[in-house]
Design a protein around this nucleic acid. Structure first.
Length: 457
RNA sequence: GUCCCCAUCGUCUAGUCUGGCCUAGGACGCCGGGUUUUCAUCCCGGUAACAGGGGUUCGAAUCCCCUUGGGGACGCCA
């Protein structure tokens, strides 16, 4: 059987971590099994859906590199299909029109609340034959009485629900739009989805969808309900838990692979391995070793993963991704390597590179102005030796440097610190030998001379 | 409240299906030490868990039951 999965986001906000993780699992599963991925936009809530959200979600998916084969298909463009399907169910006496008004429903809900019960539609219109003309109606599914609803979940095994715990749920709203449970099940059936991989929060919707599948005589897909991601307080991840849209992670300097790696590893494991390439994840992925219990999101571990992934990321791609423009003559490879070792995210990495980037030639700051006369005279002496010896390779630089220190009985720190500040404008930077090599002879001399000149005025 | 799902270090997890190799392994974090010209990195060491109670068995983290705890769902939201 050819595998086909779907991402089915609803465009009511930005793409969140939970949604991304299920997208990742779908992606890995599809790629592993040479399957197809469909993107379906579940925009059946007229009020809350927006085009901005849709655009942002698709952009986030693309940014992550989670590409798809089919779609995006918008459910709002398929209204006639759902309508026709619902009418057919009415003809077959599997669904019916309900003319109960919103006010009547609210009354029942209030009453239930007052009695400390949960509202359940009392099937008022289930057997009524009248058709009040011109009144708004919804279409409800005729949930069979006293039936066991069965389905299989990859992770949780056989699940049986008694139909008495369900009510006659709405499949078409009064505005003519289908509800989630109806549209989703219908589409999954019609679009030939073989595996539904989604969050555990949908587990209790599944019986309703199974009823829909059965009523249109379609074979059930394989269900996999993945555990939820929880916040630090162990409740469902939400706005309270801080920035959680993918966009915000992008802005905070995370690599797509870091997010994919971390999120995949949250609820899935392959032995003791922590760091994966995309291909490693694909080839080792399997649905049946997903964790069944919810997982708490840990931003510190994400940050660690990001750090490692940055280190593993090819320099050329890093240069391209960050649009790095180096000053002429700079040893780019060494610069990137030196800075990769130290940084936790892309933003910091770029900042550490400022001293050798074209875009930031004004690297000077107040630190440089704070250098004292001692430093000035020290550098004056040093530059003479430096100009004369012209060391190029790291080893030569090191030799010239240490020889100079020994001959003049100067401590490493008293020369290295001012030099570092002068050359990079910051107190924290790669090693001083690396700095000298990265900038190269010409730039080093230029910067020292400029500094001396400025301080002689 | 009703229904469903789940349960190993603070967190993510390996081990559970197919009981013995588990005096429970790895990782993040934290603590301590080392390397170092700065900030980091890096290296070494340490910390810490089978929710509780009953079974089954020669033997249980692993199988069964109960309790407890956690999560989710109960919308003309998805």
């Amino acid at each position: 059987m050819n595998v086909k999965v779907r991402f089915a986001p609803s465009p009511t906000g930005s793409l969140h971590l939970g949604a991304v993780r299920t997208a990742i699992f779908n992606y890995l599963f599809a790629k592993k099994n040479n399957g197809k991925i469909l993107v379906r936009i579940e925009d059946t809530d007229k009020e809350r859906s927006s085009n901005e959200s849709l655009i942002e979600i698709l952009e986030s998916l693309r940014w992550l590199g989670l590409d798809w084969d089919e779609g995006p298909i918008k459910q709002s463009n398929r209204l006639e299909i759902y309508k026709a399907a619902a009418d057919k169910l009415i003809d077959e006496d599997l669904a019916y029109r309900c003319y109960m008004t919103q006010e009547e429903v609210n009354l029942l809900k209030d009453k239930a609340k007052a009695e400390n019960k949960v509202y359940k539609y009392p099937n008022t219109w289930r057997e009524k034959k009248e058709n009040p003309n011109g009144r708004d109606f919804v279409i409800r599914f005729k949930t069979p009485y006293q039936t066991k609803i069965n389905f299989n979940d990859t992770l949780r095994g056989n699940i049986t629900i008694d139909s008495s715990t369900l009510d006659d749920f709405i499949i078409i709203k009064s505005d003519g739009f289908p509800t989630y449970n109806f549209a989703s099940a219908l589409d999954d059936a019609e679009m030939g989805i073989t595996n539904i991989i989604r969050g555990e929060d949908h587990l209790s919707n599944t019986p309703k969808q199974v009823l829909i599948f059965n009523s249109i005589k379609k074979k059930l897909p394989n269900f996999t309900h993945v555990s939820m991601i929880l916040g630090k307080d162990k409740t469902k991840l939400s706005k309270r838990h801080g920035a959680e849209s993918i966009n915000s992670f992008k802005e905070k300097g995370y690599l797509p692979i870091s997010i994919i790696n971390y999120l995949a590893r949250l609820g899935w494991a392959y032995g003791d391995q922590e760091i994966f390439t995309l291909n490693e994840m694909i080839s080792n992925f399997s649905l049946d070793n997903l964790s069944k219990s919810p997982a708490v999101f840990d931003s510190e571990k994400l940050s660690w993963v990001n750090n490692i992934q940055i280190k593993n990321y090819p320099n050329s791609e890093l240069k391209e991704r960050l649009k790095l423009e180096f000053i002429d003559g700079v040893d780019e490879e060494l610069a990137i390597n030196a800075v990769k070792e130290k940084n936790k995210d892309l933003n910091e990495l770029q900042k550490s590179l400022n001293f050798c980037l074209l875009t930031n030639e004004s690297y000077e700051n107040e630190l440089i102005n704070e250098l004292d006369n001692q430093a000035v005279s020290e550098l004056k002496k040093f530059i003479i030796v430096w100009e004369e010896k012209k060391p190029k390779e790291i080893e030569e630089i090191k030799e010239v440097f240490t020889n100079y220190l020994n001959e003049n009985e100067i401590k490493m720190k008293s020369l290295a610190l001012p030099l570092r500040i002068l050359l990079t404008g910051t107190k924290s930077s790669p090693g001083i030998f690396e700095i000298l090599k990265i900038l190269g002879h010409e730039i080093v001399i230029e910067r020292i001379k400029k500094f001396i000149k400025n301080n002689e005025k």
